[in-house]
Amino acid sequence: MMAQAAQQTQPDTPGREAEDYVLVADGISKQFGGFKAVDTVTLKVRRGSIHALIGPNGAGKTTCFNLLTKTLSLTSGSIVLNGRDISHLTSSQVARCGLVRSFQISAIFPKMTVLENMRVALQRKAGRSYRFWQPLSTIASLDAEAKHLLSRVQLADSHDTLAGTLSYGKKRALEIVTTLALNPEVMLLDEPTAGMGHEDIEPITELIRDSAKGRTVLMVEHNMSIVAGICDRITVLQHGKTLAEGSYEAISADERVISAYIGGNA
């Protein structure tokens, strides 16, 4: 990982893609009836980077995520993760390959406790989820890790709270931390801070920055100060197509982006 990073002195050297990019979507499209929500988008995500996907509402960002994680099937194009073509895998297979997402709508288990929510995620790696003959105490060993992760998002004193009764911001934090529990190589976050109050945004931003060490993060984010603060590279979508790509400085100076984003959420 570090050795590779050292080799990336000239990031745009052609012919090194397989090494430099952990995730490559090549001309992916999604058509709903006669409407192309994602139209031949090509997206290359560098290993170890925090990459932002931005664009006005309805630009196709969530649909893009749905395609990358195979939550939706591709109309055309291909997706390569770590040099492996994942275009024809199912969504759960993609997750097992190390590409795990969070959802724009908080996806938690509302009738289970916060700790149980974490334990479900941790069960994936523990691989005991078919053991119907064993008592729950056999996975109590996961609790320590679960509690540690929860403490990172100020959920340490909510272990026994039903997840459905948490505040909106806490639900989002719980979802992100369950995603993180899988220790994914690539983590996709769909508007992780949307609708959060100030007091929640700061720790979540910290958590994302912190957890990006040793992994790649691709995130949809409307809050431009977060994008400016933690993202290495930005892709702008509009009407399902790539409008621009580059660093925050380059993007924020790009006239096409400015006109597409007049008054954005910056």
Binding site: T71, V100, I108, F109, K111, M112, V120, R124
Partner: peptide
């Protein structure tokens, strides 16, 4: 119970 609560999320976690 997790599947009953939110099967889509269970799937996206890789189960």
């Amino acid at each position: 119970r997790a599947i009953r609560d939110n099967a889509v999320r269970v799937d996206s976690l890789g189960f």
